[in-house]
Design a protein around this nucleic acid. Structure first.
Lengths: 125, 125
DNA sequence: CAGAAAATGCAAGTCACTTGCATTTATTAT
DNA sequence: ATAATAAATGCAAGTGACTTGCATTTTCTG
């Protein structure tokens, strides 16, 4: 049973209002303005929960560096600028078709995929 | 100037003889048999170097969990069993065609991508 | 409104990886 | 070969993200 807590709502509000994907630390700092006593633990626990519930996506910005973004209605992938971290989403996931073929070839049941693009945005080029 | 050291060669040998991708810790444990005094630091430094040189690929098994695999001649992607970690490679990278379109749509210069499939192998299903 | 379960905050812990630095070792120029 | 020098190593300590245990607080349900 998942309860509606002030902390959880504050975290979600921050993510909803963000112009870009935020790291756990950034979310922590922003939520702290309204909830000075909130613990980092709470941020992590809620981000895990929200990710499980598919409310947000945990996005890998680079090795061991993740940020969170509100989920679009449909499955999305992201293109992250290596310089300024500006992120845009890619409309269509090209892999659903591909996945079926790989499954047939390998005998694996494919249940998930990661796909992430990296580059430089117009400004940073 | 990159030198040929015993440690570096031992690390590479371990990776070459491995039947599956190995984590830094696994490599450390295996190299230690021949080089008991080797430091974990050395493993990490060499894995970074070998990755830069594109001798090996750093493969993300899951969040914050990486393993290393000898590079094939060509660009590859991998399909990892979530249960037993058995890994197979996917022959063709489906992304090259897709990339040009995304670049045109977004104005980004795309320099890298991650693509990883997850599932269950025949045995684990 | 009471009781039970869920969530929080705090402190301490873990784990992978990094850094600084003195020492060793591989290459090179002699 | 040998000495000079630059790279690589090993060790110890540090970092940073995230986790865990536990007592306390809060939400929800009956």
């Amino acid at each position: 049973m998942v309860r509606k807590t002030k902390q959880r709502q504050a975290i979600l509000t921050v993510i909803q209002n963000a112009a870009k994907p935020l790291s756990a630390r950034e979310i922590y700092n922003m939520v702290k303005v309204q909830h000075p006593s909130i613990a980092l633990t709470t941020i992590y626990r809620n981000l895990d929960l929200l990710t499980e519930q598919q409310v947000v996506s945990k996005l890998r910005v680079r090795d061991n560096e993740y940020s969170y973004i509100l989920n679009a209605k449909e499955h999305r992938h992201y293109l992250v600028c290596l310089s300024c971290h500006k992120t845009v989403s890619v409309k269509k996931c090209p892999f659903d078709v591909f996945a079926a073929k790989v499954a047939a070839d390998t005998g694996y049941e494919i249940v998930a995929h990661d796909f992430q693009l990296y580059g430089y945005c117009r400004n940073c080029r």
